[in-house]
Design a protein around this nucleic acid. Structure first.
Lengths: 141, 141
DNA sequence: TCTTGATCCTCTAGTCGCTAGAGCATGTAG
DNA sequence: CTACATGCTCTAGCGACTAGAGGATCAAGA
């Protein structure tokens, strides 16, 4: 009934490369789709939607494992939202850390660019700045 | 004269794992250090400093190739600072993009967490937010 | 002196999330 | 009917590590 499309079309519609779609199937993010007589994958709208979800989540930095969890949860909609919530929450922390690091980096690199415009590398702050004196952003593990 | 230390000590001092230090040597980020009679690597203060630089830069999101460029430049300090400057500048753009994406992500995930606190997965905004309706952060490539 | 256990060495292989290519089978347009 | 695009499977590669095998060496205690 509802229209199905080959993998190339799905690729164009979702912006996910063909081998990557097959990879997502292989690792279980995407259920194996129906096949045509000649063994070609044919996807329905739900699959396309799911791939869009996956792409979006990947772009937002969720790891495949996290996406798998989210998809599993959304596949069994009776479970409490707390599970989804905790996944999201742990990502929030992670994201905040990344933003903090990048912001620090930004100002350091900006300073490089500002100060390093005249003269030679020898006078450049680059190496020094990324050394480890002074602003120690990160504790060791 | 100046004191040298084995790889384990360097690892502890820099927070970089032993195999990773050897890996950095292998890929040419770190010059091969002197060896003891029994063939063990022994590092001087400069090597430790260089590793700290590498670690810091890695944590801040520089790729190994970019670090290699920066280190190469700093190893031959006669070259114009313009080279370092252009590397730094291109990173600045990259960093700004990363920050922008993460900031957008942060607010989306925050919204998920805020709104998704009650009820079941079926009603959860998380899945919805990650769907693809509405706020499309990213153009397709 | 002996022995225990930590540390070191090299080497190979595995991880994640793709990506690229070989070699072949189909589909579609002129 | 011939191109040529698209699909298939399979294997191998990427970056940046990480883990483990199997062996040598070191430092400290009994």
């Amino acid at each position: 009934m509802s229209q199905t499309v080959p993998i190339g079309t799905v690729s164009r519609e979702t912006g996910i490369k063909v081998p990557t779609i097959r990879y997502y199937e292989e690792v279980g993010l995407l259920p194996s789709p129906a096949r045509t007589d000649s063994n070609r994958r044919s996807y329905d709208a739900a699959a396309v939607q799911r791939l869009r979800f996956i792409r979006h989540a990947r772009e937002l930095g969720f790891e495949v494992e996290a996406i798998r969890q989210l998809l599993t949860l959304s596949d069994q909609p009776d479970r409490s939202c707390a599970d989804v919530d905790s996944i999201a929450r742990s990502h929030l922390t992670e994201i905040d850390e990344k933003i903090a690091k990048l912001t620090a980096l930004r100002s350091e690199v900006q300073r490089m660019v500002d100060e390093g415009e005249h003269g030679r590398v020898a006078e450049c702050r680059v190496i020094e700045v990324l050394g480890d004196h002074g602003s120690c952003l990160h504790e060791r593990h």
